[in-house]
Design a protein around this nucleic acid. Structure first.
Lengths: 196, 196
DNA sequence: TATTTCATGTAAGTCGTTACATGATTGT
DNA sequence: ACAATCATGTAACGACTTACATGAAATA
């Protein structure tokens, strides 16, 4: 149940329409909580129905017309309640690690190319985050709101740093010659099919 | 569509029943792809229906009786096809980062306690992974299958290391006194509600 | 026999993804 | 007028979550 609270946070930072929210999710907020425009419109409908947000008076009620929302006191209270309540971390899900484990069983065809592609993507995102840090968080800012936002961005930077380093290492392990050379895995595994 | 392939990988490593798979997902595989027993039973039914796995002949057909599965050649082929195909990384979703961003708007009540709890959890998991590394991957193993499994475990270790460091840093930022002290955020933000 | 544990499943509801539909505005 | 774009939705489906149901085996 995080999407409604992500939207409440975004609307408190600045009242917006559905499409504006979608764009903001593509930029900053979506870096740690992504959402499509369909999810956002559905959730805006629910939040309005439940009395946590309301459409700005200026907005007309017809389809295709821009319609902006603002957070009501009940919405702010609900966000504060959710923020203060503890939550257990969700177990992670990473398809790339799963594929690597599968590759240890059925062979490594196609993996190296994809690791390189992921490495390039993570390097790009890392550069993007570091640019944001230079622009928005010059050294010496000290209000606690800024410190919080900065430490969140820092998580993104450190995570992308981890991925770039780990992918480089995985590529090393994948391409380094083993005792029988790097390309004999598929047959070898096939011979061992069915063992414990 | 990763769950069926996670199950195929697990079954190739060792034929198992639904409950055995559930336990293995709680241990090693679930470290990067978690699943509940309901998901697993449903998926086993689909995989059997589609001819990718089959129940071992010994298994009886009645409810409440243990029923083990093994992978058929079609299942192995499907797993190899999926493993070789490229996939885009999914955007990440982390509720804790979202809560920190929300806390910058509605106040930091309750956050510090939860950060400490998360820090303890990640430290425990890190210790767990490092123990597995010492036990299962002594220095000098060099078959490519072992190198692959090791580098996957390494991702887990490095990720938990990142989280412990980042959480410690976040706690520093949260508890360090700011220009107006650490406890005045809620009121301050409330005064600023509605600005750009 | 009664309880607990093992083991397999059903059902309902929410969330996320993909594809499509519709109205309004702007530019040519 | 026409096309492109902005903007708001609907519909359908699959994935995930939570709660519950049922049968078999062990054990007290």
């Amino acid at each position: 149940m995080s999407l409604p609270h992500a939207i409440l946070t975004a609307l408190l930072e600045k009242p917006s329409s559905g499409l504006e929210l979608t764009r903001r999710f593509d930029r900053s907020i979506g870096y740690f909580w992504s959402a499509t425009h369909q999810q956002i419109y559905r959730e805006l409908g629910r939040l309005e129905r439940d009395g946590l947000i309301r459409a700005l008076p200026s907005a007309t009620a017809t389809r295709g017309q821009k319609k902006s929302y603002e957070v009501l006191p009940e919405g702010r209270a609900e966000l504060a309640r959710w923020t203060a309540a503890g939550q257990d971390p969700k177990p992670m899900r990473d398809a790339l690690l799963l594929r690597l484990r599968a590759a240890a069983v059925v062979g490594t065809d196609g993996i190296e190319e994809d690791l390189r592609r992921h490495l390039a993507l993570h390097r790009n995102r890392l550069a993007e985050y570091e640019e944001i840090e230079c622009r928005d968080f010059p050294p010496g800012s000290d209000a606690i709101e800024d410190r919080l936002r900065h430490v969140v961005l820092r998580a993104g930077i450190d995570l992308e740093t981890f991925w770039t380093r780990w992918l480089a290492r995985a590529l090393d392990e994948l391409t380094a010659p083993g005792p029988n050379g790097p390309s004999d895995l598929a047959d070898e595994v096939h011979d061992r099919a069915g063992e414990a």
